[in-house]
């Protein structure tokens, strides 16, 4: 049953050193506030899973928290490359990071298999793809009925998944609208899930019954973190802060500048800082 907790407590109770952790969000609703709380609490040796590791994983990798990353697209969307991740992969700074790289189709299927309680995902993929040669977790099986050769990857089963959502109700049920990405699967695939939300409303009585709702018993903790997806966006609340993504390219290009920025904007702050960061982005939403 979901408990409403301050974010610092929700993170402290659900994330551990060495965990397989997913901070999911497909361009939309990226759980930045939760990731920054994890950075402040200084977790280590994490296996970070995410289809599209962007700025927050760049930050966690740059802060030396990641032992391994599992991903399918490691870029700064619309801007370019992830410079802290590149520094780790190309130069081993701040330390070497193990890589397990997939395609989007594989990751999406792997999360779905995790949510479905299956050991692996089977799909038509990786045909002729170089990843199949460098990632030992990509295998092929023969369909027992047709003989077709299909790709198989292990299910993703995170110890803990963090997502950001628009709303929870008083009971702790969670609503996600807009580009819903992989969040439902990432929550249901995980042993524990923590959700940050823009706001808590009394009930969901007026909502269409098919809107994406995670029942409260699928979530361990809910933390109210308005603006918590910044610099990504929360549909209906605030728009994407494109300037911050561009600025990140410059900040992350230099190791010292990166440390200074993290100290000033993450380490020395609390999750309360997020609400002010999206104030100028609310009018366009």
């Amino acid at each position: 049953m979901a408990r409403f907790l301050p974010l610092s407590q929700a993170v402290a109770e659900n994330l551990r050193d060495g965990d397989v952790a997913a901070f999911e969000g497909f361009t939309h609703l990226i759980p930045t506030a939760a990731a920054h709380e994890a950075i402040r609490q200084g977790f280590k040796d994490l296996t970070l899973v995410r289809m599209t590791p962007d700025i927050v994983y760049d930050q966690m990798i740059g802060m030396g928290m990641a032992k391994k990353i599992v991903f399918s697209y490691a870029g700064n969307p619309g801007v370019g490359l992830l410079r802290r991740l590149r520094d780790a992969v190309e130069n081993g700074f701040p330390h070497k990071v193990e890589i397990e790289e997939h395609s989007h189709a594989a990751m999406a299927n792997a999360y779905e298999a995790g949510a479905a309680g299956l050991p692996c995902a089977i799909f038509r993929g990786y045909r002729g793809a170089g990843l199949a040669e460098v990632n030992p977790n990509i295998k092929f099986i023969e369909c027992p009925f047709t003989g077709e050769r299909l790709a198989a990857v292990p299910a993703v089963r995170p110890d803990v998944t963090f997502i950001h959502a628009q709303k929870a109700n008083r009971k702790g049920d969670v609503l996600i609208e807009g580009i819903i990405g992989i969040q439902k699967e990432a929550v249901l695939a995980a042993k524990r899930a923590v959700v940050t939300v823009e706001e808590v409303v009394e009930n969901f009585d007026d909502l269409h019954p098919n809107l994406t709702v995670l029942p409260n018993w699928t979530v361990k903790a809910i933390s109210v973190a308005p603006g918590g997806a910044h610099p990504s966006y929360a549909h209906g609340y605030y728009v994407r802060d494109n300037a911050s993504y561009l600025e990140w390219d410059r900040i992350s290009a230099d190791r010292d500048r990166f440390r200074d920025w993290m100290q000033e904007n993450v380490i020395a702050r609390t999750s309360d800082a997020f609400a002010a960061r999206v104030e100028h982005l609310r009018s366009e939403a």
Partner: peptide, 21 residues
């Protein structure tokens, strides 16, 4: 080289299956 790349690009994303499906 994949293991010791000169430049690590973002990767395939959806492309490997877009290209074949």
């Amino acid at each position: 080289d994949y293991v010791h790349p000169r430049t690590r690009l973002p990767g395939g994303g959806g492309a490997p299956e877009i290209a074949t499906s």
